[in-house]
């Protein structure tokens, strides 16, 4: 897996997120279906939810912002703003299919507790 982070920022290399191969495949499919194969994904953390923080995964049609880190997984570009990266460091975005539902899943080693459904979480 390749990352497009800048080499002159060494501590940042520890602050990284990854996408599982299945997540890469599904992200590509979703971008394709949306008609914007070249758009990026934005991962992040926002305040709110019942356990403190909530995860964000959304499409982004714009170029990265100044405070964003950009990753590239087999052509799927992923933006994470630096603030969110603090909470997301080490996270793998996976894709899962259950009997009822399918979707992306945040595997975050820093997550201390999540509310019943995982929409929000607290950090260790």
């Amino acid at each position: 897996m390749m990352t497009a982070e800048s080499p002159k920022d060494p501590p940042a290399s520890k602050l990284a997120v990854t996408l599982s191969p299945r997540a890469v495949e599904m992200a590509k499919a979703r971008l394709q279906k949306r008609g914007t194969p070249d758009a990026a994904l934005r991962l992040g953390v926002k305040g709110g939810g019942c356990s403190g923080f909530g995860y964000v995964v959304e499409f982004s049609d714009d170029p990265p912002r100044e405070r964003d880190r950009v990753f590239d997984f087999d052509g799927v570009r992923v933006y994470v703003d630096k603030k969110s990266l603090v909470y997301l460091a080490g996270t793998t975005l996976d894709w899962e299919q259950t009997l009822m539902k399918s979707g992306f899943k945040f595997l975050n080693p820093q997550e201390a507790a999540s509310c019943g459904c995982g929409h929000s979480f607290t950090v260790k």
């Binding site: 994904l41 995964v57 959304e58 499409f59 992306f104 899943k105 945040f106 999540s114």
Partner: peptide, 12 residues
């Protein structure tokens, strides 16, 4: 237990 997310589309 963890939730499964769909990619949110701000332009949808």
């Amino acid at each position: 237990m963890s939730v499964l997310f769909d990619i949110f589309d701000p332009k949808a």
